[in-house]
Write a protein that binds this DNA or RNA. Sequence first.
DNA 1: GTGGTCTAGACCACA
DNA 2: GTGGTCTAGACCACT
Lengths: 125, 125, 125, 125
Amino acid sequence: MLLYIDENDNRPIYQQITGQIKEQVSCGILQPGTELPSVRDLAESLGINMHTVRSAYLRLQDDGIIKLRLGRRAVIARRQLRLHNASMEDNIEVRLKEIVTDALLIGMSSEELRRIFKKQLERNK
Amino acid sequence: MLLYIDENDNRPIYQQITGQIKEQVSCGILQPGTELPSVRDLAESLGINMHTVRSAYLRLQDDGIIKLRLGRRAVIARRQLRLHNASMEDNIEVRLKEIVTDALLIGMSSEELRRIFKKQLERNK
Amino acid sequence: MLLYIDENDNRPIYQQITGQIKEQVSCGILQPGTELPSVRDLAESLGINMHTVRSAYLRLQDDGIIKLRLGRRAVIARRQLRLHNASMEDNIEVRLKEIVTDALLIGMSSEELRRIFKKQLERNK
Amino acid sequence: MLLYIDENDNRPIYQQITGQIKEQVSCGILQPGTELPSVRDLAESLGINMHTVRSAYLRLQDDGIIKLRLGRRAVIARRQLRLHNASMEDNIEVRLKEIVTDALLIGMSSEELRRIFKKQLERNK
DNA sequence: GTGGTCTAGACCACA
DNA sequence: GTGGTCTAGACCACT
């Protein structure tokens, strides 16, 4: 289980954790049934508070990525292809729109942006 | 000047405003020199607090999108192709990575995601 | 906004809060758009910690009952008839099965149970 | 003796066990005097910890459902119609209220809910 | 030992 | 003022 906190990343710590775990689930590094470290262990190894890790785990549970059960370790949930509804799709589109605009405004070329997008897309599965 | 607040958009209000203005600048609807509404007017027409609009304008100024001068209306700045440095590029890549992961995890197909990306890319410039 | 903590209730405090708010939403006392008390105010008036109230609000947000937005009060969400899927229906059935069994095992008659059920059903809307 | 653990059931494991046994007692599948599997055997066949099974048995004993004796197998107790007091009735009502509210909030119709309730009621006794 | 709940207090970001 | 994040530490319930 390879996780890290990037001090230069502006996002909250819990979001860095959920992001990395989602990524590893998405590209198959973490398979359904795999146990995650306990909140205490992960907190200690990352040098952060237990509750911050728990906050990350809670959100992953809300997103259906992991299963939490009292007294047991958190485990990666079996992938259930949740049908994405219109509001989820809108959310993706809005975020994508903003990032494309930002990239172009700082002078990034369409080709460069396209390359980065393709790279991320191919990394997953 | 067409701006709106989307209550279903989870992003902070100031970010919805900066996002829409950046978008209109990026795709040419707002040209350099164009005056923006006064803080007071925009706040009133959107039904939000003046501080929120002020905050949005300040951020746009920080990003070099608009120019603010005491006693004058905000105006769209001359588009200056700022060379994007490595850290900016990293930021774009990190955000893009997260969106791609989220999209795939909710079951969106690569084709669908590619289509949305292309659509956003073509809308600009 | 009438809420209370029942010391004799075994359920966690946050669940008593979510339960009461859900109930008031369900029977129309709380209408969409209504503002909830701030986490600090509600915590103080209930004599509990801010974080406990926040925990309740977070779960209500997850269930789509309220909308949380940074810097703004929590508000009752506009009711969107979320289609209940099979797993939600299973959840209701499992809980109902358990309670029926418990009631009969403590010697409650079917008629009495039916009466209580009917009473609760009629209370809502 | 048919028992199973449902990974999708969010309730604690001990509660799934007590629930299923109570249910079988309630509808007559398990008659007074019937022996339950040993703690060790049941734990092994369900793939769970012995402590968990032990915990379930202890609770069933507390509820007067089974009798435990050192060195002997647990047996189903003689069904004694314990008079239910007001606090027990309150407990049933509170739980029923919460289920009804949750069901209506996820958009389940009164008819559907009534059907499920009736189904559970008829299954017992 | 593991997650779940609660308290307490600090500081930040947004309106 | 209002919600959001993080830390810290206590105690409980379950495995």
